[in-house]
């Protein structure tokens, strides 16, 4: 498989074509929720992502955005991956995914890749420094929306790994 075929795996193309979670869903009355709007200032891609929680558990992820196939597929995959999980677990997966994006195509250990499931198909993206931020856009929105919901403490460090200096998205609060 060529590099570009490793990047655009069929799973990615399929998720990009029929993404899961697209279309913002109104929050149930009284439910805990958080929302984040993230933009990628270098390309203008953007997403608004909303989480609804029951206790610590993510009940629903929904989002509205526009961007390249990598960013859309990543949002779709993360929707499947974190729905029904505790916020801390979602954050743990986000950390693993950020680590994967810093792996320069090498991937992670088997146990971590098992945890990430379908999200490991983005390993090929990590060979392309300019595209890592596309894959991370949704994960940045997820983390930020969990923080705004109160389910997660504000992170001490910025979201992007060293390999992806470009994505510094804005949150709802500071726009």
């Amino acid at each position: 498989m060529s590099s570009i075929e490793q990047m655009y795996q069929q799973v990615i193309l399929d998720h990009a074509k029929t993404p899961h979670g697209r279309g913002l869903v109104e929050v149930t009355d009284g439910a805990t929720s958080g929302q984040s709007h993230q933009v990628n200032p270098t390309c203008g891609d953007e997403v608004t992502l909303r989480v609804e929680l029951a206790g610590d558990t993510i009940e629903r992820v929904s989002w509205e955005g526009q961007g390249c196939s990598i960013s859309q597929a990543s949002l779709s995959v993360l929707t499947d991956l974190v729905t029904g999980r505790p916020a801390t677990e979602a954050e743990h997966l986000g950390e693993a995914f950020r680590e994967l994006m810093g792996s320069r195509g090498k991937g992670l250990d088997e146990a971590t890749e098992d945890e990430l499931g379908d999200a490991t198909v983005f390993t090929g993206v990590s060979r392309y420094p300019a595209r890592i931020k596309c894959a991370l856009l949704g994960w940045a929105a997820l983390r930020d929306s969990l923080v705004t919901s109160g389910a997660l403490a504000a992170p001490q460090t910025a979201a992007a790994p060293d390999a992806a200096p470009a994505a510094r998205a804005t949150t709802e609060e500071n726009r």
């Binding site: 655009y8 390309c43 595209r131």
Partner: peptide
């Protein structure tokens, strides 16, 4: 049906450097 970034990536794979974005 194809985002500019994806267009640029396929062109890049053929050795063709174009700009993508705004």
């Amino acid at each position: 049906g194809v985002h500019a970034h994806d267009v640029g990536q396929v062109l890049d794979d053929a050795g063709i450097a174009v700009r993508v974005g705004h």
